[in-house]
Simulated scan of single mutants.
Amino acid sequence: MPARRLSHLLTAAGLAALTWAGAASAVDLNTATLDQLRGIRGIGPKTAQVILDERARGGRYLSFADLSDRVRGIGPRRAQSLQSAGLTIDGGGTRVSGQGGGARTATGATADGEAAVPVKPPAAARR
């Protein structure tokens, strides 16, 4: 009976260690350095630099769909793979599909409450 109990404890400890190890390797896309991005499986030096350059040019990434739209070579599947490898956006809980992720309203605010960005009204509305 004690051996069985020990086995359960070891299994639980092993799962806890794996969970902790996964959390420790999480890298936030909006704050990561070049070396941190290169540490994510599936991101090489060139892609890491493109991600940083695009972040400097276009601002924070709003979702994995936004990453996929802005960085050539990262499609929805690869974005999902990068998320599984530990890449997060603003601490996790982000979307991979294009549903709702960076869509802006007429006022320029995103559906998830990001800061408003001026949006030029359509030409017909300006007349």
Score class of each variant (00 low, 15 high):
residue 7 S to G: 14
residue 8 H to Q: 07
residue 10 L to H: 11
residue 10 L to E: 15
residue 13 A to E: 08
residue 14 G to S: 13
residue 15 L to Y: 04
residue 19 T to I: 09
residue 19 T to W: 15
residue 22 G to V: 06
residue 23 A to N: 15
residue 28 D to K: 01
residue 28 D to T: 07
residue 29 L to G: 00
residue 31 T to P: 04
residue 31 T to Q: 01
residue 32 A to L: 08
residue 32 A to K: 05
residue 33 T to V: 12
residue 34 L to M: 01
residue 35 D to R: 07
residue 38 R to A: 10
residue 43 I to T: 05
residue 43 I to C: 06
residue 44 G to D: 08
residue 45 P to W: 08
residue 46 K to L: 15
residue 46 K to E: 11
residue 47 T to Q: 07
residue 47 T to F: 07
residue 48 A to S: 10
residue 52 L to A: 01
residue 52 L to F: 06
residue 54 E to S: 08
residue 55 R to L: 00
residue 60 R to F: 14
residue 60 R to K: 03
residue 66 D to Y: 03
residue 68 S to E: 06
residue 69 D to E: 07
residue 79 A to N: 06
residue 81 S to C: 11
residue 82 L to Y: 09
residue 82 L to C: 02
residue 85 A to E: 04
residue 85 A to V: 09
residue 88 T to W: 13
residue 91 G to M: 10
residue 94 T to K: 06
residue 97 S to V: 04
residue 100 G to H: 14
residue 100 G to T: 05
residue 103 A to R: 15
residue 105 T to L: 13
residue 105 T to E: 09
residue 106 A to S: 14
residue 108 G to C: 08
residue 108 G to P: 04
residue 110 T to G: 13
residue 111 A to E: 11
residue 117 V to T: 10
residue 125 A to I: 03
residue 125 A to M: 07
residue 126 R to D: 06
